[in-house]
Amino acid sequence: GSMEQGFLPKGWEVRHAPNGRPFFIDHNTKTTTWEDPRLKIPA
């Protein structure tokens, strides 16, 4: 929902695949990933 959306880094969006699995869109680089960007520790 909109709650989890608010925690994503700037430029990211979460969508759900037809099977219900969430995936993440990085509008900054125009890419998608199954990995939650929030789980990655910034270098």
Rank of each mutant, 00 (worst) to 15 (best):
F24N: 01
N28P: 03
I41L: 14
T29M: 05
K10T: 10
G20R: 04
F23P: 00
D26H: 06
R21M: 09
T29L: 05
P22K: 10
G11W: 03
P37R: 03
K30L: 08
A43C: 14
N19F: 03
W12L: 00
S2H: 13
E35P: 02
T31R: 09
A43M: 13
L8S: 00
P9V: 05
H16A: 08
R15E: 03
L39E: 09
N28I: 08
P18H: 08
T31M: 08
L39R: 07
T31V: 08
I41G: 12
D36P: 07
R15S: 06
W34M: 05
L39K: 12
R15A: 07
K30F: 07
P42M: 10
G11S: 02
T29Q: 05
K30I: 05
G1R: 08
K40W: 14
K10I: 10
P9N: 05
E4R: 11
I25A: 03
L39Y: 10
K10L: 10
M3I: 13
T29N: 09
S2W: 13
I41D: 13
R21Q: 09
F23L: 08
G20V: 01
G11V: 00
P37W: 02
A17G: 09
H16Q: 09
L8Q: 00
I41F: 13
A17H: 08
D36M: 01
K10R: 11
N19R: 00
G20N: 05
K40A: 15
P22S: 07
P9I: 05
W12M: 00
R21I: 08
N19K: 01
N28K: 07
I41P: 14
T32E: 07
E4D: 12
D36L: 01
Q5T: 13
F24S: 00
T33R: 04
T31L: 08
W34Y: 08
H27Y: 08
I25T: 04
E35C: 15
D26P: 02
N19P: 02
T29D: 04
H27P: 05
P42I: 11
N19G: 08
G20C: 09
L8H: 01
E13W: 04
G11L: 01
D26S: 00
L8W: 04
F24Y: 11
T31Q: 08
D26W: 04
P9D: 02
A43T: 10
R15K: 09
N19L: 01
G11T: 01
G20P: 03
V14L: 11
T33V: 06
W12R: 02
S2C: 14
F23R: 01
L8M: 09
F24R: 00
G1Q: 11
L39V: 10
R15T: 05
D26V: 02
I25P: 03
W12D: 01
E35M: 11
P37L: 02
P22F: 08
P18D: 07
M3Y: 12
N19M: 01
T29I: 03
T33W: 08
E13G: 01
F23S: 03
T29A: 05
R38W: 05
H16G: 04
R15L: 08
P37A: 00
L8Y: 04
G11N: 06
G1Y: 11
H27S: 06
K40Y: 14
D36Q: 03
P18G: 08
F24P: 02
G1N: 11
I41N: 13
D26Y: 06
T29G: 07
K30H: 15
H16R: 15
F23E: 05
I25V: 09
E35W: 14
P9H: 05
L39I: 12
R38S: 04
H27F: 07
V14G: 02
T32S: 09
N19W: 06
V14Q: 09
